[in-house]
């Protein structure tokens, strides 16, 4: 479990690193600890895997990547790892998850593709689907239409 200071640090990070000369000092001042303490804790977060990536988080749509497709497949449990490995060979696949299949939505393998336009993404999906094995699975492509909300997580129950 994260101690209180680590939780508060993540709350601060979710707001975005301050854009100023000494951003870790500024966060330290907000939390009443030293700059060194903040930096050390962030290093520990990275080592322990609490933070997967620390850096610039871009808004794809604003940068011209307007087509965003969530692709889903219905894959037998025993084949799911193999198919996921296959999907990850494509550089345009940015996320790949297993999720539970429900009676109303019977898909268990999800991946995301971000592209400049719909046609590019459709071509990329066709590339994925050129594999004979993957063609046997029920599949859907859900392009995004409107983005109603996109922001960093707000953590609750944490003092900030």
């Amino acid at each position: 479990m994260l101690d209180n200071l680590n939780q508060q640090l993540l709350v601060q990070l979710a707001k975005g690193l301050p854009i100023c000369s000494r951003p870790y000092l500024e966060i330290g001042e907000r939390l009443g600890v030293s700059e060194t303490e903040i930096i050390e804790r962030l290093k520990q977060f990275q080592t322990s895997g609490i933070i997967k990536r620390f850096g610039v988080i871009v808004k794809h749509a604003a940068l011209g990547y307007r087509a965003n497709a969530m692709c889903v497949w219905q894959v037998p449990e025993t084949e799911i790892d193999e198919i996921a490995e296959y999907l990850l060979e494509f550089s345009f696949v940015t996320l790949c998850y297993q999720r539970p299949a429900l009676p109303e939505w019977n898909y268990n393998l999800y991946c995301m593709i971000h592209g400049k336009d719909r046609n590019t993404v459709l071509t990329q999906i066709a590339q994925i689907n050129s594999h004979p094995q993957i063609q046997t699975f029920t599949h859907q492509v859900l392009f995004s239409r409107r983005c109603f909300k996109q922001r960093g997580a707000v953590y609750h129950g944490f003092s900030s």
Binding site: I19, F45, I50, I57, Y155
Partner: peptide
């Protein structure tokens, strides 16, 4: 660098400089 970041931040080309935290590392999602 500071000005360039401030500019792309104001123009909303970036969400933030921050951390990607894998699902369920903190809390549940």
């Amino acid at each position: 660098v500071l000005q360039a970041f401030q500019d792309i931040n104001e123009k909303k080309f970036i969400s933030r400089i921050g951390a990607i935290i894998p699902p369920n590392q903190i809390g549940v999602s």
